[in-house]
Nucleic acid binder design. Structure first.
Lengths: 145, 145
DNA sequence: AACTATTCCTTGTCCGGCTAACTTTCTTCC
DNA sequence: GGAAGAAAGTTAGCCGGACAAGGAATAGTT
């Protein structure tokens, strides 16, 4: 009753995800970032200052993880937090000027990650992989509810 | 420069993996287990007593995580550790009698996880998903070296 | 206006993943 | 045989992910 025998798809997802995250971590470590932090920065660079809860939604994480992650980014000088003028509960997070120095490098890292992930696949294989993942995501989303 | 725009496949992998792990965690929590621990137990049930390094290899993790995880399983009474009679460095890990009570339930949880993951897919879609994941795994393995 | 419910965020705790540094024990090679 | 190298585990520290619980502010209801 090995895991692979009981759930081949589950096991494959597990292994691919682990490899993928490991490689992402390696690429990001050269920038002094940890997996997940780059998603926060990318959201801020793209969409501008926003509340933590918006970042939570965009980066697929949860509020406590986001709060801690932002606190670390703040300490690193990449991010700032200011109270919202219109909502006393909310904090508006914004990317600092200093963070912009990372912007191109983070883009390169993600481009490289995508190249390592999909680079050896044909266009058809890439399409098939995207379609398969979309199906899985849909099924899993339905299951989560 | 959102993550989805730069690396659609990477982003899809990320999201599917997160959903999948979340659902696995939910199923396992009812058994008092955390994601990863069930892989250790399944390896022990299937292959019998073995060294920690063997478990590391089978469950796709690393030595420090395994050491901690096993210590927790030991404290929970699900696992035992004894020094190897032939290698003074190694510890042989084995599943306890008590752990056998979980065996069927863990199998059910994985079956349910696979059903939630693949249940709504046709046989062809399932095959395609497996093939796509295998390709991705191969590419990522190559990239990791 | 007052009470309730919801939203936003924080803190504490536990978990696995990862790196680095270390100890103990083989193995290998000269 | 002895020294150099490799292998098995451990500990400590960081990270994000998850859950529970709680404070503070807003929104909704009566």
């Amino acid at each position: 009753m090995s895991a692979a025998a009981v759930g081949p798809l589950s096991h494959a997802i597990f292994r691919v995800a682990r490899l993928h995250k490991s490689i992402a971590g390696r690429l990001l470590r050269e920038l002094g970032l940890h997996p997940g932090q780059e998603l926060v920065l990318m959201a801020l660079w793209t969409d501008g200052p926003q509340r933590q809860v918006d970042l939570v939604e965009k980066t697929d994480t949860d509020a406590p993880s986001m709060a801690r992650s932002i606190a670390r980014l703040e300490k690193a000088g990449l991010v700032e937090r200011h109270p919202s003028p219109t909502d006393g509960r909310a904090l508006i997070v914004s990317a600092t000027q200093a963070s912009l120095a990372l912007r191109a490098k983070v883009g390169d890292a993600w481009t490289e990650l995508e190249r390592l992930t999909a680079g050896t696949l044909s266009a058809e294989q890439r399409e098939a992989a995207l379609a398969a993942l979309a199906l899985l995501e849909e099924a899993l989303s339905r299951a989560e509810r």
